[in-house]
């Protein structure tokens, strides 16, 4: 169709920026997990090791959705799936 290549690249860049809004959710989620882990250590300092490893595991899993956003952004920026043919 009649779209200019540069217009497509510009829109891809905007889309990549919008995709990274996905980073907000994991940020909030990881913060909540870290906060609860901190209060758990405050209540039971003896279980610090277990709490830390559980927290890190949960945070790494929660991070996945943010990483999907990152992947979409990288695809838009560098693989350029919407090139005009």
């Amino acid at each position: 169709m009649g779209f200019d290549q540069n217009f497509i690249y510009g829109c891809s860049a905007i889309g990549a920026g919008l995709a990274l809004i996905a980073g907000v959710g994991p940020g909030v989620g990881q913060g909540i997990a870290a906060g609860h882990a901190a209060s758990a250590v405050g209540r039971n300092p003896g279980a610090k090791g277990d709490i830390t490893s559980t927290m890190l595991l949960g945070q790494a899993v929660a991070e996945t959705t943010g990483l999907y956003g990152l992947l979409v952004a990288m695809l838009l920026m560098f693989v350029k799936p919407f090139q005009a043919v």
């Binding site: 790494a60 899993v61 991070e63 996945t64 990483l67 999907y68 990152l70 992947l71 990288m74």
Partner: peptide
Amino acid sequence: ISLSLRLFANVLSGTV
């Protein structure tokens, strides 16, 4: 898919 994408995206983001 989620297992492999998680590992891939984390390491790739560091590389980038």
